[in-house]
Design a protein around this nucleic acid. Structure first.
Length: 723
DNA sequence: TTAGGGTTAG
């Protein structure tokens, strides 16, 4: 059958058929060696081409549209054909090929509003917001009136570029031309104001709307969610339900996000009920994934897992949501297990998966596992990805391999502010404050503007290294040179910097002069410094401030108790302990991790559950003996209880990091580096013992505690006993 | 020809 002949008799509404036939015809034209001859044999008129282009535009069939373009050029029907040229320009704009769209657009003399709108839309929706606004202005200067199809995209461009003043000006133009309450225009205005973070303006507009559709409700709800006001999002959602407006998929996604932010499991479950009752999940993976995320955020990892296991279809986002959920709940082991299962089932990891898994590795210092992920990253073509690279820098630094962090950082083709920050944090964690400051200056020399988080990273690095003068200078630079008001994190770094370096009175004066109300964290930081410098009087002031804020964190109580214990004030120790009991607080047990052949072993304080327990305690006995012969005297000030000195000493040898070190000494070859992670800060005596073991056994021991890294080598620690 | 949605590095 001849395609072209059949085409002549097809009714225009039979588009599917028409499309099939014309695709066939196009194939002939495209691939025939006698291209020109065929065109003349099966000519298309401009109306048929227009109909076809419309179809290709709607389905974004770029290749087919381009073929048709070639065909109409060859056949000569495009010459001076404004109708077809406009359709073609619109087609290219929708497909995101803006250069092609613009070439055709510029050739058209009589431009319809349809054409202007398509180009403005094309620019706005394909990442060329500025071009979109320039064309919008050009349209007006040509005397062409903007209409209800123009404004949504001009507003989208303003929102994406955060051009607040321009956006408001266009809003005025919309009011003048009487289109303010056009449902598409006003919904676009709402979307623009929420991008500006101006929920007040968005809400005023929303409240005055004569007619609202589901998009209006969804836009305002997602606006509150995105602008970190999930409470208001939920309250508008209740109004939406009362108004009788149908809840669609977008509504449910936005509100689930608000429930997740609020950890509002009750409301989240109600949405889940609605989804099940309406059988919505079956056709939509987005909702299942959002529900998984909501349960994870509400600390209901079991509920999330059940949904995940029951899901008929799992996509990469489902896996990612679950893996991220385990990370957030602190179960990095399950997160890594799930990742292995994902790979085994053939689900391809994406950027998000890899970032999440690297996050799990740094939670438990799984360096070997992290290295395998690095290989997987390179294999899957993410080796040059900035976000993934930044996660690698962070993972290596937190797993104790600063040199690998530096290598990744140096070899990164494109670095952004976060990458610089991650590297600075890495130097800080390992006590290399001067290197962190040098990198900060190098970054500034490249005209990269630091933000508040970057200042926190640099100040933290200064505080870990005790660089008081340098840190103070940077702190004041923040306001003077960069016009940034310090936040609580910056104040906290400064208190730590001043306090731990022994300037306790200055740290106290600094807190009293702060422009914002000090938090428990800031007083707790001062308290920790008081413990280091044994200043009981100031410690009591700091502790009282913490306790007045009714903290649920046990750390400050332990700290004060340790301060009293060091002074042998046992009555006060008992008084603090009874406060802890009365408040129902519990000290988390000390816990250390060590990775051996990609398996992470965990030891609790006094742990006897490991299969090598006998050998481990035997090794500790040996070590204790050898250390004593080398002149070691135990420092029992870290022991919380008023018990006999021998018992105290025995308690110290139960500390989890010592069990992990003994295990490592038994299971690794001579000279091999030992890497340990501890959930709490390392105590004074364990710090001394580890230094001595490093010398005695000729081993480098890299220990990550709750705050930083210690590199023990030949009897010394990289922190210079400053931690 | 128009607006709104899930996982994501310091």
């Amino acid at each position: 059958m001849n395609g072209a002949l059949t085409l002549q008799f097809l009714k225009p509404h039979n588009k599917k058929m028409l499309c099939k036939k014309l695709s066939f015809l196009l194939q002939i034209h495209s691939y025939s060696t006698q291209f020109t001859e065929n065109v003349f044999k099966y000519p298309l008129n401009s109306v048929q081409c227009g109909t076809l282009l419309q179809l290709f535009t709607n389905t974004k069939s770029f290749k087919k549209g381009k073929q048709l373009h070639a065909l109409v050029i060859s056949s000569g029907i495009i010459l001076n054909n404004t109708y077809l040229n406009s359709k073609l320009s619109a087609f290219y704009a929708i497909c995101g090929s803006m250069t092609d769209a613009r070439i055709l657009f510029d050739e058209i003399i009589l431009k319809s509003s349809f054409l202007w709108n398509f180009l403005i839309r094309g620019y706005a929706c394909n990442g060329f917001s500025l071009n979109s606004l320039l064309l919008y202005r050009e349209m007006l200067s040509f005397g062409q009136k903007a209409d209800n199809f123009t404004y949504p995209f001009a507003l989208k461009a303003c929102g994406d570029l955060m051009l607040v003043e321009t956006g408001r000006k266009i809003h005025c133009e919309i009011v003048i031309c009487g289109l303010e309450w056009d449902i598409y225009v006003v919904n676009s205005l709402l979307a623009m104001y929420l991008k500006f973070g101006d929920m007040g303006a968005a809400r005023r507009l929303f409240d005055r709307m004569p007619v609202r559709d589901s998009t209006s409700w969804n836009t305002i709800i997602s606006g509150y969610t995105k602008n970190h006001d999930p409470v208001e999002a939920l309250s508008v959602f209740v109004l939406m339900e009362k108004s009788g407006m149908r809840l669609d998929c977008t509504t449910l996604l936005s509100i689930l996000s608000a429930c997740a932010d609020l950890a509002a499991v009750k409301q989240g479950k109600e949405i889940h009920g609605h989804v099940v009752r309406n059988n919505i999940t079956l056709s939509n993976n987005f909702l299942t994934n959002s529900l998984i995320d909501m349960y994870c955020n509400c600390n209901s990892i079991v509920g999330a897992r059940r949904l995940f296991e029951d899901a008929t279809r799992r996509d990469t986002v489902s896996w990612n949501s679950m893996i991220t959920g385990y990370n957030r709940s602190g179960d990095a082991f399950e997160s890594l297990r799930l990742f292995c299962q994902m790979v085994l089932e053939g689900a391809g990891p994406d950027q998000v998966t890899l970032i999440a898994v690297l996050g799990a590795c740094d939670q438990i210092t799984a360096l070997q596992f992290g290295m395998s992920i690095h290989a997987c990253i390179v294999r899957n073509g993410f080796g040059t990805n900035t976000v993934v690279g930044t996660s690698l820098i962070d993972m290596y630094a937190k797993c104790g391999s600063l040199c690998c962090s530096c290598k990744v950082f140096d070899e990164m083709p494109v670095k952004n502010l976060v990458s610089w920050s991650a590297m600075i944090v890495g130097f800080g964690l390992h006590g290399q404050g001067r290197e962190a400051i040098a990198l900060f200056h190098e970054m500034k020399a490249k005209n990269i503007m630091p933000d508040k988080i970057l200042f926190t990273s640099v100040l933290l690095a200064c505080s870990h290294a005790g660089l008081v003068d340098e840190g103070s200078k940077i702190f004041y630079q923040m306001a003077e040179e960069y016009n940034m008001k310090p936040g609580l994190d910056h104040y906290s770094c400064m208190v730590d910097l001043l306090g731990r370096s022994g300037n306790l009175d200055e740290a106290y004066a600094f807190i009293k002069a702060m422009e914002v109300k000090p938090t428990t964290n800031i007083w707790a930081t001062l308290l920790a410094s008081c413990r280091v410098h044994r200043n009981v009087k100031l410690a009591e002031i700091a502790a009282q401030n913490v306790f007045d804020m009714n903290t649920k964190v046990v750390g400050p109580y332990i700290c004060l108790s340790n301060i009293y214990a060091a002074e042998k004030r046992w009555d006060d120790v008992e008084r603090v302990r009874s406060m802890v009991r009365w408040k129902g607080l519990k000290k988390p047990p000390g816990c250390s991790f060590i990775e051996l052949d990609k398996v992470v072993h965990r030891f609790l304080v006094g742990d006897k559950s490991h299969e090598q327990t006998e050998a481990i305690y035997g090794k500790l006995e040996d070590l204790s003996q050898q250390l004593k012969e080398a002149g070691y005297m135990p420092n029992t000030s870290s022991v919380f209880y008023d018990v006999d000195g021998v018992v105290k000493e025995k308690m110290l040898w139960d500390h989890s990091e010592r069990l992990a070190i003994a295990f490592a000494l038994i299971n690794t070859g001579p000279g091999m580096t030992i890497r340990i992670t501890k959930n709490l800060r390392v105590c004074v005596d364990c710090h001394t013992v580890t230094k001595l073991i490093s010398k005695l056994m000729g081993r480098e021991i890299i220990m990550r505690d709750a705050h930083r890294f210690h590199h023990f080598r030949d009897g010394f620690c990289s922190c210079g006993d400053y931690w």
